[in-house]
Amino acid sequence: MNLKTSTTNKWYPVYTSARAEKKAYEALINKGISAYLPLHRQLKQWSDRKKWVEEPFIKSYVFVNIAEHEQADVLMTKGISRFLYFSGKPASMPDRQINELKLLMASSFELEITEEDLQPGEKIIIKAGPLKGMTGEIVSHRSQKQLILRLESIGCSIIVHVAASYIERF
């Protein structure tokens, strides 16, 4: 086994208990574990008021950047349920996907998450704006052209509304 590979950190999506994403994230950070919880602002309506709140963008998931030997520490964290598995091993995500997700969350684009199994379409690259250089697939959804970024390791896609003039085929 290559020693370098066994000590390299990877991003892993971990499944949390229901509605425990923020508490699980805080517990991971308090343990010194590098973690990422994508949040987005949402206007919530109660019977007596409205309020802007930070909600987890991908329900029931937190992402951890750890070495393989740290998996037990993550599992022993309050609010963490399990790792996602692919072919009998914990599923990991490329750094590029996490960086693109962070870029999307920091952008002013209108975002939507879907668990629909969207069919592959034309591959595109964004050529202008804050998402310049990001790649994805175009689909027709609600009769608008939108960029889809697939997060295959957790089985969901992110829909971003992008002007057609900002994209080009490759």
Rank of each mutant, 00 (worst) to 15 (best):
M1K: 13
N2P: 15
N2K: 13
N2C: 15
N2Q: 13
T7R: 13
T8M: 12
N9E: 07
N9D: 08
K10W: 02
W11N: 11
T16M: 12
A18H: 04
R19V: 06
K22G: 06
K23N: 10
A24C: 02
A24H: 00
Y25T: 07
E26D: 14
L28Y: 00
I29F: 02
G32Y: 05
I33H: 07
I33G: 05
A35V: 08
A35C: 15
Y36V: 08
L39Q: 14
H40C: 10
Q42D: 12
Q45V: 00
W46K: 02
W46H: 01
W46A: 00
K50M: 02
K50D: 00
K51I: 02
K51A: 01
W52S: 04
E54H: 15
E55Y: 13
E55K: 15
P56H: 09
S60D: 02
S60H: 01
S60Q: 06
Y61N: 04
V64I: 01
N65W: 02
I66G: 03
I66N: 13
H69Q: 15
H69F: 08
H69V: 09
E70F: 02
E70P: 01
R82N: 09
F83V: 03
L84A: 12
G88K: 03
P90K: 04
A91Q: 08
D95G: 12
R96A: 13
R96E: 15
I98D: 03
I98Q: 01
K102P: 06
L103H: 05
S108I: 04
F109D: 10
F109Q: 04
L111F: 15
T114W: 09
Q119I: 14
Q119G: 15
P120R: 11
P120C: 13
G121L: 07
E122A: 12
E122Y: 13
E122H: 15
E122W: 11
E122S: 12
I125Y: 01
P130H: 02
L131T: 14
L131M: 13
G133V: 05
G133I: 04
T135H: 10
E137R: 05
I138W: 04
V139A: 14
H141K: 14
R142T: 09
Q146L: 14
L147R: 05
I148D: 06
L151A: 08
L151P: 03
E152Y: 08
G155D: 11
C156F: 14
C156Q: 13
I158W: 06
I158G: 09
I159S: 10
H161D: 07
A163M: 09
S165C: 11
Y166T: 05
I167W: 11
E168D: 08
